[in-house]
Design a binder for these strands. Structure first.
Lengths: 139, 139
DNA sequence: GTAAGTGCAAATCGTTTGCAATTTC
DNA sequence: GAAATTGCAAACGATTTGCACTTAC
């Protein structure tokens, strides 16, 4: 999982400038353990440095996405949500009641996915699995 | 799988008026075997009756979605795509090269999904599984 | 005839962009 | 000092909505 200093190195390697804004946004992302949307990321960043505009947050997120240091999600509400890219792909359970998002991995499902597309002559390059759930009522 | 006459009956049952526009849009949906976006649905509908506005297409799709006769998808491009609701849930393989969408079902994956959320005390109310693929190169 | 449904154009929401001003290197 | 990056506000694309007009019942 990339951290702020990893991002700094990446910027350097790519000839990108390590601005105050990028540093702050990287740290905000590294500190988050939820899946904030852009407005929330802007709020958290602006709390550290009020000069950061939302346009820069959008631009920086797009940049980080291209560098593959963040992953963009769409959980059915309109706006995009972000998290630091994980080396292992993981999927999400969305609790429709509380809005809480739980991460999980399941090797067997991954294996089945590979098999399905391979049998059709394809190569799996990405996948998205989201389970929308509600708390189970006891009887 | 609902067809036009089923939709007519549903409108009747719910006290909704069966307008020319709804009739046309229902037929366009029933005739489609792809996953058209709103603009495309509007184009197909307007070809039948040019009086149909895009606002009505949006309103009708929202209505049909509430009635559970259509399913709305988001395949990673921006706009929403629609298809008639199927009684069996199915998932999608998206060929990133051609944009083609292939439907599939896999009982074993469904079973694993149920198990995952049950073990966490949840009930699965919906899920989304999308496999993004590219044609496999031979070696 | 009346309430539901429509078309139109304006509004909204999330996101992107042109440009002049500001930084980082 | 030059090129990259920023902030601002305007532009954008998909979708929604207010309102006067139309239509199904």
């Amino acid at each position: 999982m990339p951290d702020s200093s990893y991002i700094a190195k990446l910027c350097y390697d790519k000839g990108l400038r390590l601005t105050e804004q990028r540093r702050v946004i990287a740290k905000v992302l590294a500190d988050a353990n939820d899946h904030p949307d852009v407005e929330e990321l802007h709020a958290r960043s602006a709390a550290v440095d009020s000069r950061i505009s939302i346009a820069t947050v959008y631009r920086t997120l797009r940049l980080f996405e291209e560098l593959e240091v963040v992953t963009k999600h769409d959980f059915g509400d309109q706006r995009a949500r972000y998290e630091l890219a994980d080396s292992e792909h993981h999927d999400h359970i969305i609790d429709l009641k509380s809005g809480k998002v739980i991460e999980f991995e399941n090797e067997e499902i991954e294996r089945l996915q590979e098999k399905i597309v391979n049998d059709l002559g394809y190569e799996l390059v990405d996948h998205k699995l989201e389970l929308y759930v509600l708390p189970r009522k006891k009887k």
